[in-house]
């Protein structure tokens, strides 16, 4: 499948601001959604997204299609920024009126009819995730999307800490052969 963002990202490396605007318009809604789930605060999420896009602009010359799809490269840049911010805060931001929680968006897309509009890469990943036990999958996805610690997952799911740790560890052990990096 053609990577529609790779060309724009490579033009950003050549200081093309028009390409950067197009890339921002196309990708910022998904990337903000990720920041909101990790940080649970609109202002913080936008601050981090801004830092992320500055890094994308500055480091666009280090991206090459051989590194994977442009969107995944950008998502990695932004998520790492968000995780850095999360770790720099002594406590997680207080929960606001708008709650970003749950995995409905991911569960829905496990259904075959919902997979059609997605890339082959995510379809492959979802196929791998489907092989896990539901509890293992839930813990891994909550950890990825929300940055929850084991203790937070234990509290949230009402399960012993050791159980949550085992779910994640065994889930990832089972997932590795399927992912084949």
């Amino acid at each position: 499948m053609e990577d529609k963002y790779a060309d724009l990202l490579q033009q950003c490396a050549a200081n093309n601001q028009l390409a950067f605007k197009q890339l921002y318009d196309a990708t910022s809604p998904k990337l903000l959604s990720l920041c909101l789930r990790l940080l649970q605060d609109k202002q913080l999420a936008e601050d981090v997204l801004q830092e992320g896009f500055i890094k994308i602009w500055d480091k666009a010359n280090t991206y090459s299609p051989g590194k994977g799809r442009a969107m995944t490269w950008m998502a990695t840049v932004v998520r790492n920024k968000a995780l850095d911010k999360l770790r720099s805060l002594k406590t997680k931001p207080a929960e606001t009126e708008i709650q970003y929680e749950g995995l409905e968006f991911a569960s829905r897309d496990l259904e075959p009819e919902s997979l059609e509009h997605l890339s082959q890469d995510i379809q492959g990943l979802m196929e791998c995730l489907k092989t896990l036990k539901p509890a293992q999958r839930e813990c891994i996805l909550l950890s990825y999307y929300y940055g929850h610690t084991h203790q937070e997952l234990s509290d949230k799911l009402g399960k012993p800490l050791g159980t949550v740790k085992a779910w994640i560890r065994r889930g990832l052990e089972d997932l590795r052969p399927c992912l084949t990096i």
Partner: peptide
């Protein structure tokens, strides 16, 4: 592995950023 898992972003619902965010980026550039 980061690149493998980053595909999960595709599943997220869109959240529109404020107009100020692009203005800040444009000013920076």
């Amino acid at each position: 592995y980061e690149l493998k898992f980053a595909h999960l972003v595709e599943l997220l619902p869109d959240e529109k950023p404020s107009k100020q965010l692009w203005s800040n980026l444009e000013a920076h550039i």
